[in-house]
């Protein structure tokens, strides 16, 4: 073996190829089958996609780096299931490009945050976390309430998401901007379009408490309220 190596270490290209060869095996064995083994991602008929407003909110979550403190992955451990709810399924992040499972819980897990608190609570908490939860170390995101949400390019976002495999229809792409506004404007005509395209159960509300204004806070709260609720597969699996 050492004799063989004595030869190999004299050839830079040979050495390079050996490194690539030896180094590729692990990744190939572990990643490729995740696309071929059906069991990897559970079936979830009826799972819906993010609405444009929720997607915009998710992008704010990404932009602000919330993953630095929050996981979105409840592990198959008794204490996590008892504290946070049913363990996370792979299918629940099927439309998550990228996934936001996280690696650090400075704050609590958020995989089941959707519907846990009211919109007002989220807004108040983002504006000043320590007023609502005194020991909190979370930063204030008051500025989200001041920033108008950019909606004109949401169609292009949906199209890019479709390019990576999320089943957005032409209708959804064409109406992305209108739907984003509609979801935060209950009662309006645009709101009906949201329910039509994304389902009756879609939350259509003034998420940020400021009717008539579409802020980044609307988007972020709309997103948080749907985290873990695109499908109820996890609850069904847990019930079994």
């Amino acid at each position: 073996m050492f004799g063989l190596h004595y030869k190999l270490e004299r050839k830079s290209i040979g050495l390079a190829l050996a490194i690539i060869g030896i180094g590729s095996i692990g990744g190939l064995v572990e990643i490729a089958p995740l696309f071929t083994i059906d069991q990897t991602v559970e079936d979830a008929p009826g799972m819906r996609v993010y609405t444009p407003l929720e997607l915009a909110g998710r992008n704010i979550y990404v932009r602000e780096g919330c993953y630095a403190c929050h996981s979105q992955m409840i592990r198959t451990l008794r204490d996590e299931v008892e504290r946070y709810g049913p363990y996370s399924l792979a299918v629940e992040s099927k439309y998550d490009h990228p996934m936001l499972w996280g690696s650090k819980r400075t704050g609590p897990d958020l995989a089941r945050i959707g519907g846990k608190y009211s919109d007002q609570w989220h807004v108040a908490h983002f504006v000043n976390p320590r007023e609502i939860v005194p020991p909190s170390v979370m930063p204030s995101y008051a500025r989200l309430l001041r920033n108008p949400l950019r909606t004109d390019d949401l169609g292009r976002h949906l199209r890019a998401m479709r390019a990576v495999g999320v089943p957005y229809t032409d209708d959804m792409i064409a109406n992305a901007t209108a739907d984003a506004i509609g979801q935060a404007t209950p009662g309006g005509e645009a709101a009906d379009g949201v329910s039509k395209r994304y389902g009756e159960a879609t939350n259509v509300r003034v998420f940020d408490g400021l009717p008539g204004e579409l802020t980044e806070m609307d988007a972020l709260v709309a997103y948080l309220q749907i985290v873990g609720r695109l499908t109820d597969a996890a609850y069904k699996t847990a019930g079994k």
């Binding site: 064995v29 572990e30 490729a32 089958p33 071929t36 083994i37 059906d38 069991q39 198959t76 451990l77 008794r78 299931v81 363990y87 699996t237 847990a238 079994k240």
Partner: peptide, 22 residues
Amino acid sequence: AFPLGSTFTKGLLGADDRTAVT
């Protein structure tokens, strides 16, 4: 432990985290 095309070796103990936590 190991992938086999469209399935994987299940192991003699038949262990599975999901059933275990349930």
